[in-house]
C-alpha cells in the first residue's frame, strides 16, 4: 500500500436536520483499498457518498484527492468543470439502480463508449473494440452490444454500468449498494466479478452497503454509521467478528439471526 492517501476526508458535515445527513466524518483512503460504509437506511451513508464523489457540497469539512498527476486537490475548491472531468476520467460511480447510472435510451456499446467520447476519442472502430472487450470482461454477451439496456436483466444492467465506469481506467470508484435488488445467486456472481476487477485494476473503492455480507466480501476496512455519525471503524474482520460499539453489535447480531 502506498504511503500517500488517495482520498483524505476531514470533519465532513452535511446536515439536512439534526441527525439527518452526515456529521464530522474523517478518514483516509489509500490506493487499492476498499472501504465499506455500513449502516441502516437513514444513517447518512448515501449523503456521505454523494459528498465524497463531488455531487453534494458539504456544509463543513474538507476532502482532498490525490490526482493521477500526483496533485493534491481540495475537491470543493475545484471548478465544476474540473470536478466533472475527475468524475469521468479518474473516478467511477456505480449506482444502486442501473437506470441512474446508465443511458437507458441508447445501446450498450454507446453506454460504454460515452466516457471515451467525452474525453475526445473520435474513432468509431476503436470505440467499438473497447466496448466489446469490456463487455467480455464483465461477462456480457458481445452479440448484445447494439441492444439497449432496457432489454437486459437487472444483473446484466449492473455489469454494463460497471463496464461503463471502468472503461476510462479510474483510480477511485464509488459504489452505492451495487448488488442491492438483485437475486442472491446473481448477487454472488456480481460480487465475485467486482472483487476480481478491483484487484486486477488496483482500484480504491468506497462502497456503501447495508449488507454486511457484501461488506465482508469486498471491504478491507469498515466505517459503521448511525444517525449521521461514525460509531466504529476498523479492519472488516475485526469490526464484524469483535464489534465494540453496541450499535455495531446489534447490526452484526441481526445479520446472524436473520
Amino acid at each position: 500500500m502506498n504511503a500517500e492517501p488517495i482520498l483524505q476526508v476531514e470533519n465532513l458535515t452535511k446536515l439536512y436536520a439534526a441527525g439527518k445527513g452526515c456529521e464530522a466524518v474523517s478518514f483516509d483512503l489509500y490506493p487499492g483499498e476498499v472501504l465499506g460504509i455500513v449502516g441502516e437506511s437513514g444513517s447518512g451513508k448515501s449523503t456521505l457518498l454523494n459528498c465524497l464523489s463531488a455531487r453534494l457540497a458539504p456544509d463543513e469539512g474538507d476532502i482532498h484527492y490525490l490526482t493521477r498527476a500526483a496533485e493534491r486537490v481540495n475537491l470543493y475548491a475545484l471548478s465544476e468543470s474540473r470536478q466533472r472531468h475527475l468524475q469521468r476520467t479518474e473516478w467511477g460511480i456505480v449506482h444502486q439502480h442501473p437506470r441512474d447510472g446508465l443511458r437507458m435510451g441508447v445501446s450498450a456499446g454507446a453506454n460504454i463508449g460515452e466516457r471515451l467520447m467525452a474525453t475526445g476519442q473520435r474513432h468509431y472502430g476503436n470505440l467499438r473494440d473497447t466496448a466489446q472487450s469490456w463487455m467480455s470482461d464483465v461477462e456480457l454477451d458481445i452479440a448484445r452490444i447494439d441492444d439497449k439496456p432496457t432489454t437486459y436483466s437487472g444483473g446484466m444492467q449492473q455489469r454494463l454500468q460497471i463496464a461503463r465506469n471502468l472503461v476510462t481506467h479510474p483510480r477511485l470508484v464509488f459504489m452505492d449498494e451495487p448488488t442491492g435488488g438483485l437475486d442472491v445467486s446473481v448477487q454472488a456472481r456480481l460480487l465475485d466479478l467486482l472483487r476480481q476487477l478491483v484487484t486486477e485494476m488496483n482500484l480504491a473503492v468506497v462502497i456503501v452497503t447495508h449488507d454486511l455480507a457484501v461488506a465482508r466480501l469486498l471491504a478491507q476496512r469498515l466505517i459503521v454509521m448511525r444517525h449521521g455519525r461514525v460509531v466504529e471503524t476498523g479492519l472488516t474482520d475485526q469490526v464484524l467478528d469483535d464489534p465494540q460499539h453496541a450499535y455495531t453489535q446489534l447490526l452484526v447480531s441481526s445479520v446472524l439471526t436473520s
Binding site: E80, S81, R84, R88, R103, V106, S107, G109, A110, G113, E114, R115, M117, A118, T119, R122, Y124, L127, R128, I145, D146
Partner: peptide, 16 residues
C-alpha cells in the same frame, strides 16, 4: 462546461 460527449453518442448509434 463544454460537456459534449453525448453528441457523439447519437452519431455512434447511427453507425451501429
Amino acid at each position: 462546461l463544454e460537456d459534449y460527449g453525448v453528441m457523439h453518442i447519437k452519431l455512434y448509434e447511427d453507425i451501429a
